[in-house]
Amino acid sequence: MASYIHPLSDVHAEAIGDLTNIWQFTVVLKDAVIGENCNINCNCFVENDVIIGNNVTIKSGVQIWDGIRIEDDVFIGPNVTFTNDLIPRSKVYDRRIQRTILKKGSSIGANSTIIGGIVIGEKCLVGAGSVLTKSILPYTVWYGNPAVQKGYITDESCLLSLDLIDKQTGDTYYLDGDKPIKHD
């Protein structure tokens, strides 16, 4: 099935998967790669050296700069800010672009800032308004400025405390590698 590209967007990329929607006033440069079944909301910008996986949601007001890799099933909330240059200078073009990776199933809350050169682990949750300055492990929950780990999250999106207890149900979990598993 075809993708939908809003007529008021400016899309130069050809590598766009089926069923992907790109909304008005969004700019996508020619070398960007975008997977299937994505939704890129209005007023976004996607630079050239960008790879976006399948089933990704990017809400309004997000700029995806060179060096950013977004795996499948990622959610990026409105007005999330990414950086890719740790020492930005006007008119200096020999900079080192930082590679930032958002692993499968991670979610970034609205108005968060993501510093370049980090890895956001699988299924992680970064709360709205956070400033994330370092790589984070899979299945962890972070928020604040600077963001600190506040707990864990399960495959079923149950929020757990740092001691792996679901405060709503009282159920206890343990870590199998990085993944929280419910005690029987």
Rank of each mutant, 00 (worst) to 15 (best):
M1H: 11
I5C: 01
A13W: 14
A15F: 08
A15D: 15
A15N: 12
G17V: 02
D18A: 08
L19D: 14
T20C: 08
T20L: 02
F25R: 06
V33E: 15
I34E: 11
G35Y: 06
N37Y: 12
C38A: 07
I40F: 00
N41L: 07
N43F: 04
F45D: 09
V46S: 13
E47D: 14
N48S: 13
V50Y: 00
I52N: 10
N55I: 08
I58F: 01
I58D: 08
S60C: 05
Q63L: 14
Q63A: 10
W65C: 14
G67P: 06
R69I: 13
D72Y: 01
D72F: 03
I76L: 10
V80C: 04
T83V: 12
T83D: 13
D85A: 05
S90I: 14
I97A: 07
R99C: 12
R99W: 05
T100L: 11
L102N: 06
L102E: 11
K104D: 12
G109A: 01
T113G: 08
I114F: 14
I118P: 05
V119E: 15
G121S: 09
K123Q: 14
C124D: 09
V126A: 05
G129Y: 09
S130N: 08
S135W: 04
L137W: 04
L137C: 10
T140G: 06
Y143E: 05
G144A: 03
P146I: 04
P146N: 04
V148P: 07
K150I: 06
Y152L: 03
I153D: 10
T154D: 09
D155R: 02
L160H: 02
L164N: 05
K167V: 15
Y173K: 00
Y174G: 11
G177I: 04
D178H: 12
P180E: 09
P180M: 02
P180K: 09
H183V: 15
